[in-house]
Simulated scan of single mutants.
Amino acid sequence: MRIITLPLLILSGVIFPINYIPHEFRQYVLWNPIVHGLESMRLSFFEGYHTLDGIDMTYLWLWALGLMTLGLMLHVRFAGRLKAQ
């Protein structure tokens, strides 16, 4: 499990800021909505922190809203099976 989680932690920006990732890979890392939340949090916490131009909290909120909608739809769809167990 650690073999899988360590690269994911590095790519999500938890251990290293996105500025340390090579330029050609940054566009792929920005697909991860967690990166947008972490970079926005660092930007608001540290005064002199410089982040990438592609960081947008709207992207994170849309992902969160989409996943909550999907979860609600799945809950409504499988509510009978959940009550039976």
Rank of each mutant, 00 (worst) to 15 (best):
G80W: 02
H50Q: 13
E39Y: 01
F16A: 10
M57Y: 02
F45A: 11
G80Y: 06
I21T: 12
F46I: 13
W63H: 15
W61F: 03
E39P: 00
L82I: 13
T69F: 08
F16M: 05
L70Y: 03
V76S: 09
Y28S: 11
V14W: 00
H23G: 05
K83P: 03
N32Q: 01
P7S: 00
F46P: 00
E24N: 12
W63Y: 11
I21D: 06
M41R: 04
T5G: 04
T69N: 03
V76N: 06
I18Y: 04
T58M: 02
G71V: 01
L9A: 07
G80V: 02
R42G: 10
E24H: 09
H36C: 01
Q85W: 05
L30P: 10
N19D: 13
A84N: 13
Q27N: 08
Y28A: 14
R42S: 08
S44K: 13
A84I: 06
H75N: 07
V35H: 01
I3M: 07
H23A: 15
G13I: 00
L30W: 11
I21F: 15
H36M: 01
L65G: 06
A84V: 08
A79M: 10
W63P: 10
I4K: 14
A64K: 04
E39M: 01
S40I: 12
F25K: 02
I34T: 07
I55Q: 01
M57K: 05
P17D: 09
F46T: 06
Y49P: 00
H36T: 03
L8G: 08
T58V: 08
E47L: 10
L38E: 09
L67W: 08
E47G: 13
L72K: 05
F16E: 09
P7T: 01
E24F: 11
L74C: 14
D56A: 02
F25M: 13
L6I: 07
A84R: 10
Y49A: 04
G37R: 05
Y20A: 07
R42P: 00
M73V: 12
D53W: 11
H50C: 05
R2G: 15
L60M: 11
F16D: 08
M57P: 00
E39R: 00
L70A: 09
E24Y: 15
V76L: 15
Y20Q: 10
T69E: 06
L82F: 07
F25E: 01
R2N: 07
G13K: 00
E24L: 09
F45V: 12
T69D: 08
A79N: 14
D53P: 05
F45N: 08
V35T: 14
G71M: 11
Y28F: 09
F78C: 06
R2L: 14
Q85C: 04
I21P: 10
G48I: 01
